[in-house]
Structure formats: structure tokens, C-alpha cells
Simulated scan of single mutants.
Amino acid sequence: MSRRRTTEVAAAWGGRRCTTCRCRLSRYNSETVCSVCNRSGTAAQTTCPFVPTQVWTYEDVKDALVHRDFGRLCQLVRERGHLRQEDMALLTGLSQAFLSMLESGQRRLTNIDRIIVLLDGLNAPADLTGPMLRPAPLAPAPPFQAVS
């Protein structure tokens, strides 16, 4: 086989990948996802996760927030909202490993900036968190004045 033909075959074989799991797609597969992802429904689960608003109505969730027990809060929000730790990581910007340690009690969340990021990512209601634990809204910039 010539070098040019080998390059064309390699490009055709390795050029297309599943949009979900990134495995190589068969040249006979005209879809954008592999058959495994298509069968398992993984391709349909690519929507952005969110915390349902009813999660914040549970008393144990409110209690964890009042006591600033962020490990318990994350666990409850995840369980009540039917989320995975990976979903929580996407929402909050905290790593899945850190969230796992936080939920198990191995780590604590004490940095106010990270607390704000967590609560903002979970879309916690301001009436439950208080004004101190919410990001300040950006003030509008003053208008420019013309210099003559």
C-alpha cells in the first residue's frame, strides 16, 4: 500500500469520534455517537444538570444550610435532586474528588469564596443563604463623559 493511501485510511479511521465518549466510530456508522452510547442513552443525557427548586423546601436541606454543614448540604442536594457528583462538579466548579471528600467529612469548606461559588452554582435561594453568602451584583458602570 502506498504511503498516501495509508495516510488516507488512517485519517478516515481515526478522524471520526463519538461525541459522547470520544471512542473511534466505525466507518459504517453514519451517526455521531457510537452504538454503545446510543443504546445506553448516554447521548441523550448531555443536557446541562440543574438543581430542582423543590430541593430547597426540604427541612433537612435548610437545616444543613443554616448550620453551614456544606458536606451534608451537598449530599442532600445531590440525593434530593437526583444528581451525580459529576453533575455537582459541573454546577459548582469544584472537583468531583473534593465533593466526595466534603460529603464524607474528610474535607471542610471554609474559604468564603469557594462557599459563594458552591451556593451560586447550586442556585441556592438568597432568602436561605443570607446576603453575606451570595455574590454581590455588579454595579452598573458610570456613563462616559465627553472631554472637549
Rank of each mutant, 00 (worst) to 15 (best):
residue 2 S to H: 11
residue 5 R to L: 13
residue 9 V to H: 02
residue 10 A to K: 02
residue 12 A to G: 00
residue 12 A to R: 01
residue 13 W to G: 02
residue 13 W to F: 01
residue 14 G to E: 03
residue 16 R to P: 07
residue 16 R to K: 04
residue 17 R to A: 07
residue 18 C to H: 10
residue 19 T to G: 09
residue 19 T to W: 02
residue 23 C to N: 12
residue 23 C to E: 12
residue 24 R to M: 07
residue 25 L to G: 07
residue 26 S to D: 05
residue 26 S to Q: 12
residue 27 R to D: 12
residue 29 N to Q: 11
residue 30 S to K: 09
residue 31 E to D: 15
residue 32 T to P: 10
residue 32 T to D: 11
residue 33 V to C: 11
residue 33 V to R: 10
residue 34 C to V: 08
residue 34 C to N: 06
residue 36 V to F: 03
residue 37 C to W: 03
residue 38 N to L: 14
residue 38 N to T: 15
residue 38 N to V: 08
residue 38 N to R: 15
residue 38 N to F: 14
residue 39 R to P: 08
residue 40 S to D: 05
residue 40 S to I: 14
residue 41 G to V: 08
residue 41 G to T: 08
residue 42 T to F: 14
residue 43 A to P: 06
residue 43 A to H: 15
residue 43 A to T: 11
residue 46 T to D: 02
residue 47 T to S: 14
residue 49 P to Q: 06
residue 51 V to P: 10
residue 57 T to S: 11
residue 59 E to M: 06
residue 60 D to E: 13
residue 61 V to S: 10
residue 62 K to I: 01
residue 63 D to E: 14
residue 64 A to W: 00
residue 64 A to F: 00
residue 64 A to N: 04
residue 65 L to F: 08
residue 65 L to V: 08
residue 68 R to S: 02
residue 68 R to I: 00
residue 69 D to Y: 09
residue 70 F to I: 08
residue 70 F to N: 12
residue 71 G to N: 01
residue 71 G to L: 03
residue 72 R to D: 06
residue 73 L to E: 07
residue 73 L to P: 04
residue 74 C to I: 07
residue 75 Q to C: 13
residue 77 V to P: 06
residue 80 R to I: 00
residue 81 G to Q: 05
residue 82 H to Y: 01
residue 83 L to M: 02
residue 86 E to S: 15
residue 87 D to W: 00
residue 87 D to A: 09
residue 88 M to W: 04
residue 88 M to T: 10
residue 89 A to T: 04
residue 89 A to D: 03
residue 90 L to E: 12
residue 91 L to M: 09
residue 91 L to D: 04
residue 92 T to Q: 02
residue 93 G to N: 12
residue 93 G to K: 08
residue 96 Q to H: 07
residue 97 A to R: 12
residue 98 F to N: 10
residue 98 F to T: 11
residue 98 F to P: 10
residue 99 L to S: 03
residue 104 S to H: 07
residue 105 G to A: 12
residue 106 Q to H: 06
residue 107 R to Q: 05
residue 107 R to V: 01
residue 108 R to E: 04
residue 109 L to Y: 03
residue 112 I to W: 00
residue 113 D to N: 11
residue 113 D to Q: 10
residue 114 R to C: 02
residue 116 I to M: 06
residue 117 V to Q: 08
residue 117 V to G: 07
residue 117 V to C: 11
residue 118 L to H: 05
residue 119 L to G: 01
residue 122 L to V: 05
residue 124 A to E: 01
residue 125 P to K: 08
residue 127 D to G: 04
residue 128 L to R: 14
residue 129 T to L: 05
residue 130 G to T: 05
residue 131 P to Y: 03
residue 132 M to Q: 07
residue 132 M to E: 11
residue 133 L to M: 12
residue 133 L to Q: 06
residue 134 R to C: 11
residue 134 R to V: 12
residue 134 R to W: 13
residue 135 P to C: 13
residue 136 A to I: 11
residue 137 P to W: 02
residue 137 P to D: 13
residue 139 A to Y: 03
residue 139 A to M: 07
residue 140 P to G: 05
residue 140 P to T: 09
residue 140 P to C: 04
residue 142 P to M: 14
residue 143 P to Y: 13
residue 144 F to Y: 09
residue 144 F to R: 15
residue 144 F to H: 11
residue 147 V to C: 12
residue 147 V to T: 13
residue 147 V to I: 10
residue 148 S to R: 15
